[in-house]
Amino acid sequence: MTQLDKLEKGKRAIIESVDLDRDTKRRFSNMGISPGVILRVCRRTFGSDSLHVKLECAACVALSKNEAKHINVTPIGGKGGLGLGYCRRGGFKAKDFCCEREDCQLQKED
């Protein structure tokens, strides 16, 4: 698990938790940034002050580093497994990624 602001450009990850105050957390959730959501870091500004991420719902969101460091994510590794997104929500299509969580309840398909 790592912080979102430390995630490399182009990497996909699954959000594990958002450790911000209740109001901000709710705002992030309303904009699509909540646990279980997959995102990809598209780019950063000069000096890495802000990040541009693309969420699995296809929305692109810009957020600053101050907030990104409070979002814990698990980078998505190789193909073949099922991810947390499936575990938590249930019922939607399987995705071709592995969440790499040790405690994932679903068996990885190698």
Binding site: T24, R27, I33, H52, V61, L63, N66, E67
Partner: peptide
């Protein structure tokens, strides 16, 4: 305040 903003296509 925290900066979070949608970037439309």
């Amino acid at each position: 305040e925290p900066f979070v903003m949608e970037m439309p296509p």
